[in-house]
Design a protein around this nucleic acid. Sequence first.
DNA 1: CTGAAAGCGCTTACAG
DNA 2: CTGAAAGCGCTTACAG
Lengths: 347, 347
Amino acid sequence: MLSPPPPIKSHRATGRVTLSDVARAAGVSSSTVSRALRGERAVDPLLIERVTAVSRMLGYVPDPAARALASAHSNHVAILIPLLSNTLFVDLLDAAQTTLRAAGFQTLMGVTHYNESEEEQLLREQLLHRPAGLLITGLDHNPSTHKLMANSRVPCVHLMDLPTDQQADATYCVGFRQTDAGAAMTRHLFKRGRRRIAFAAAQLDPRVMQRLYGWRQALQEAGAYDPTLEWLNPAPSSLALGGLMFEQIMQQHPKVDAIFFCNDDLAQGALLAALRLGISVPSEVAIAGFNDLTGSDQMVPTLTTVRTPRARIGEAAAQMLLTLMQGEVPALTHLDLGYEIVQRESS
Amino acid sequence: MLSPPPPIKSHRATGRVTLSDVARAAGVSSSTVSRALRGERAVDPLLIERVTAVSRMLGYVPDPAARALASAHSNHVAILIPLLSNTLFVDLLDAAQTTLRAAGFQTLMGVTHYNESEEEQLLREQLLHRPAGLLITGLDHNPSTHKLMANSRVPCVHLMDLPTDQQADATYCVGFRQTDAGAAMTRHLFKRGRRRIAFAAAQLDPRVMQRLYGWRQALQEAGAYDPTLEWLNPAPSSLALGGLMFEQIMQQHPKVDAIFFCNDDLAQGALLAALRLGISVPSEVAIAGFNDLTGSDQMVPTLTTVRTPRARIGEAAAQMLLTLMQGEVPALTHLDLGYEIVQRESS
DNA sequence: CTGAAAGCGCTTACAG
DNA sequence: CTGAAAGCGCTTACAG
């Protein structure tokens, strides 16, 4: 009794267990193994079982490169975020990445540094990997970026932002209304008796600007709008900058009775500067932040802020993308996850 | 005059400009284009020029999947870090990623959550993509992980840690001596007159434990070691936990005159708790941290800490990996980037 | 429902 | 130094 000669591997073989190894062992064709393993219907249930068992026994794992080459789709999902130095985006990334990995996708991260041409370049590089899907922060991109996305036909979900106009839009997005959130916090401060509410912002990205518009709108409605209370600084947001801005505002506008910072790191810096300067918060001036970042609940006094559901946004956006990548249509085009005013000691 | 018929594309063609498009247009074989574009020597310089020009004109970009399949090496670099919620590792990731991207590599991130079997599983998944290189945090991994790394023959650089024994080791790593850093801060506090120096730690990962050993060692040398001054908590590090630990230590060890926290977030939390409790720092008790994270220089009082060169570690490790991936041998096996005591107000 | 064959777009011995 | 050919490990019309 002669056993069949072992299959002769070419000298270029990588040593992996391949699809044809499984096919040979299961006594079917490679096509059938391929179809059975991908759960394509139109395969005999009994064969599916046999193939699955054999493939498991042999420890077969499909080669992503071969699959990508043959099918024109990788198991990569590209994600574009502005910065890694802002917890906000790291939370987004973390949640999205966890959800996608559970579904078998590898995350390809790109950091745009709030630079639209860097964003375009990154997208171009990522598109080479023929990602199965794309997650991108915000709705503002330059025209070539929009064109790239459209031409690639890669399913895409936008993070953090929702379109302002109510019209039906083919753009999928998960986020909340930044303008509303800005207005809501402003009204909240107003209701608690503050009348001269300054708005202090850094970075000045599109979402920060929307919060500014919300602040303006709320104050205009209340007849309390004063353009000299806008403090806009294009520098990156940081604790140190928040402290600096606080000092400047208190010097130049001693009658300000509240400051609404566009991000918690600025507000935390302001709180610490107040301690240093001996300015009492909230009795002399109220401080409010945005995002409810780490540490805001530990500050002295604890920081009043707007809690934003960034982890849930990351997860829900990944979920929506998974639906799109399966060729299905998500229930909603725009998913509004809202925000929450967190009233603490600083106001 | 008939122009040659346009090349008939099969119905499976993706519409990309391919290597053979370039070959045809340049009047050479695909092999030559492949070799010329990859800068393989043994190609006529004149041909290199022609091929490069044509490929640029046609906008040719190599397909990563095809390249990976044919060469058994992708342009991915896998990186394994414990957490995305600790700035430390995000800084590492950011720096490494930036350096690698500049050299044409895509970063494949994996988050292990300090879990050795999750780490192994992630590595297994990443290895499927046949990464050109691997960056991994720390030197402690379970045996199967070590085996996976060795068998894969993928060049690898370890981050943050250096081996304790001086013997020549084939393991490449970039970091600093955690034990030394722990001892140095302890001696620093001792020199400034502190005698009852507590060590408070969370997470208890291998690097934290090394700092603990450094603290022990320094106090033993000074004859001031007291095991009841060790406060170890396996929970994740956070501001809130730091505050809690501070409160407990001050209650149970009122004679403690300094607390050395294993991470700045704990120390920042302690500083804020001290403010709340009306305990004066540093006059009643000195506080020191580790890492010099964001905000430590803004605290009230500002935080004395150990500055660790994490961005430089990420960059240098990526650089070392690039060398290895080119088949060259780095100048050093172990790169020690040191640390720095930052004396501020809290001690 | 299944299989043989072609093809995805590269790289790489091999021969010259 | 260059080219023809085989091969990497899959998927997918096409035919049955």
